[in-house]
């Protein structure tokens, strides 16, 4: 019993170390402006002030950036659930030519750093035919630059999501498919009616993972966003970091705000997420 107490204390110690930095930032974001830059510093705010939140939400474009990030993230989550998950399923359960080679190619793609591909993709995005004022040859307009779809583009099908889905589905019993097929179900029916309903852990994991991938993107969002209308939250954060600006207060508030959707999403999906994530590693 004594050792159980020791173990519990160990877990709590781990949790404290993990959370302390966040707690500190959270507390600092409620400090009045005069205390953020006070010297010597106060660790705890003498009074809680909402001024930085009020400022960030009313005097800046943060709410707009927030909305933009949310729209992009929802597009990305939808794309991955509807396109990438079925692809991963096929890699796990359906026989087709060059399956393993194609899968290896998908994995290899994860190893090229995106700093190298971001400009080529940018050029492609601008010259997509018939979009954003472009003609059939892709000239004349701006393609998908400065649109939410453009911001979502590189994340709508993520290689890692295909990888995770393949791992998950290859652990589910294949007899399910065979049985349903004998009963006359089409491949589509097998997937949607048999496998999807028992894949909630996977879907939860992918929802969180792809949401985070879209939410955290910086480099692509920086160059594809045009003006305030399509500036995302991560790019907006660097606005507060500019030289000579005294905007640490709103930066702290915005940092906290930027973390909230992920925390909510995570708490809602926690149980299923943890189960889903664990499957990725077994094979």
């Amino acid at each position: 019993m004594k050792s159980r107490a020791l173990i519990n204390m160990g877990v709590i110690a781990f949790a404290l170390v993990t959370l302390a930095p966040f707690a500190w930032i959270l507390l600092s974001s409620f400090k009045p402006q005069s205390e953020i830059f006070a010297w010597p510093p106060h660790f705890l705010p003498t009074r809680l002030s909402l001024e930085h939140y009020v400022y960030a939400l009313t005097s800046t474009h943060i709410p707009l950036y927030f909305l933009n990030s949310l729209i992009v993230a929802i597009m990305v989550v939808a794309g991955n659930l509807l396109i990438a998950v079925p692809t991963g399923y096929a890699f796990a359960r359906l026989p087709f030519q060059y399956r393993d080679q194609l899968f290896l190619a998908v994995l290899a793609g994860m190893m090229v750093p995106n700093q190298a591909t971001v400009i080529p993709l940018f050029i492609i995005t601008k010259h997509l035919p018939l979009l954003g004022g472009n003609d059939l040859s892709g000239a004349g307009g701006n393609g998908l630059l400065g649109t939410h779809l453009g911001l979502a583009l590189p994340h709508i099908v993520l290689a890692f999501v295909i990888f995770l889905s393949r791992q998950f589905f290859s652990e589910l019993p294949g007899e399910l498919r065979d049985a349903a097929r004998i009963d006359g179900a089409t491949e589509g029916q097998v997937f949607w009616r048999v496998y999807v309903p028992i894949s909630l852990p996977l879907l939860a994991t992918i929802t969180i993972f792809s949401f985070v991938a879209a939410w955290d993107d910086f480099l692509w969002a920086l160059i594809v966003g045009v003006g305030e209308e399509t500036r995302t939250l991560q790019v907006g954060l660097s606005v507060f970091l500019t030289q000579g600006s005294a905007n640490w207060g709103p930066l702290l508030a915005a940092t906290v705000l930027a973390t909230i959707p992920i925390v909510i999403l995570f708490i809602v999906n926690q149980r299923a997420f943890i189960a889903g994530l664990a499957t990725g590693s077994d094979k």
Binding site: I119, K126, V226
Partner: peptide, 23 residues
């Protein structure tokens, strides 16, 4: 007039990309 304020640290990155794409 469409104005955009670009942080100094991000200016070269954004300009390089926009020169490459022609916008």
């Amino acid at each position: 007039v469409r104005v955009e304020f670009v942080p100094w640290g991000d200016l070269s990155t954004k300009l390089n990309a926009s020169f490459a794409a022609g916008n």
